[in-house]
Design a protein around this nucleic acid. Structure first.
Lengths: 210, 210
DNA sequence: TTGGAAGTGTACCTTTTGATACACACATTT
DNA sequence: AAATGTGTGTATCAAAAGGTACACTTCCAA
């Protein structure tokens, strides 16, 4: 697909004109529909996706459960692919489009090259590494030490903080998939929360009252 | 402390003579005794430690428990400090010397500067980010999905693989601290393993028979 | 040599989490 | 309206993990 002229209005972290030229020359844009799986566990990765608009969800699977790793929003990229750029790498996670998304795709081998040439690119790479690491470290501590009901509560307050609305459109099953547990466990916890007047339940959404 | 001439025989990842000169000029070496705490949770970090010899253990605490994040061996550095180099950062983990250690300490502000100038330094930084991320991702999946007895078994087989000996000198309490659980839980699991002829128990050490 | 610290074994009980099963409500499609 | 799929509530049972307590052993230092 053609690379549009206004690409760098959206991806405004890449400031050097030379870098922009290289991106236009080597990148291509793909459109993903909601539900498209872009990366599978075990897949060999030789490209770097940067979200222009839309949202990707990256998660790990284990038999009948899954757990969220992180979301990739506009101007962001995916750690799996980034790891792959420097060393051979097979993905240990899955990536799926949560919304119709437009994604800039770059070949892996350019990542390291540009990183030495363009400071804004370098900063982008390092910011990704750092913030994904921090995110994961935080999630790790939560899973290791906190009971699920607390993790549900934090999920809600994070959601409300990030979305500016206290109405959370999510089913119990999906919430279980975010936190790495099962639907029944979540339903039980939510019912207790409702009794405690912490939330109001309705089909397909939860009103968080904090 | 004086920087010794043979430093770069031990830290042989830094190849550029200019880089070596800069390290000699700006770094200093500290000696840590076994048990010295080098980094505390909440501490503001403005230095990067690179282990010359010895071993650091980096872990998270939670009330009465703790869990291993990673070890820092010779030629390696600590993610907490590395994160700190690019953005203001307060440590979310603790670091303690497990053995008498010699550590090269560099001021944070040089990390980003050198990274643009010296490819071998850049590679060191990125390899650190990547391998620490992979490590953590693996640990995350384990904590999220695997029961503790399996995690104990994996701890043993990893240990044996890395140390080339099937005799693991560790107490039940310390093992609990590695895995984020409590002593009683570990003792119970180990006793069961012994009944299954998977290990032989003795005071202060465990013989893994795989 | 003795007293305390550290390490281990284990019993008992509670809490948390998970597995399975089933009823019913709501929504969408035919 | 009937059929189907998805979402939710909840009961029952089992397994995993944790908390507390205490006895006993081994080691080490005073």
């Amino acid at each position: 697909m053609e690379l549009p002229i206004d690409l760098f209005e959206k991806l405004n972290s890449f400031s050097e004109p030379e870098l922009q030229k290289e991106i236009l020359k080597n990148g291509k844009i793909i459109k993903a529909s909601k539900g498209d799986i872009l990366i599978r566990e075990g897949q060999y990765l030789n490209f770097l996706p940067i979200v222009i608009h839309g949202l990707l969800r990256v998660y790990q699977e284990n038999e009948d459960r899954e757990i969220l790793l992180y979301y990739v929003g506009p101007k962001q990229t995916c750690m799996m692919s980034l790891s792959a750029a420097y060393f051979d790498y097979y993905s240990t996670a899955n990536g799926i489009a949560m919304e119709p998304s437009e994604i800039l795709v770059l070949p892996s081998h350019l990542i390291a090259e540009w990183q030495l040439k363009y400071p804004s690119w370098n900063k982008f790479i390092l910011r990704t590494f750092k913030s994904r690491y921090d995110e994961l470290l935080n999630a790790f501590g939560n899973v290791a030490f906190k009971p699920i009901n607390l993790r549900v509560k934090e999920y809600f307050s994070d959601y409300v903080k990030n979305h500016g609305t206290s109405k959370i459109p999510i089913s119990h099953q999906i919430l279980a998939n975010e936190l790495g547990t099962t639907r029944v466990v979540i339903s039980r916890i939510l019912k207790q929360f409702e009794k405690d007047n912490l939330i109001k339940l309705s089909r397909g959404s939860i009103e968080y009252q904090a």
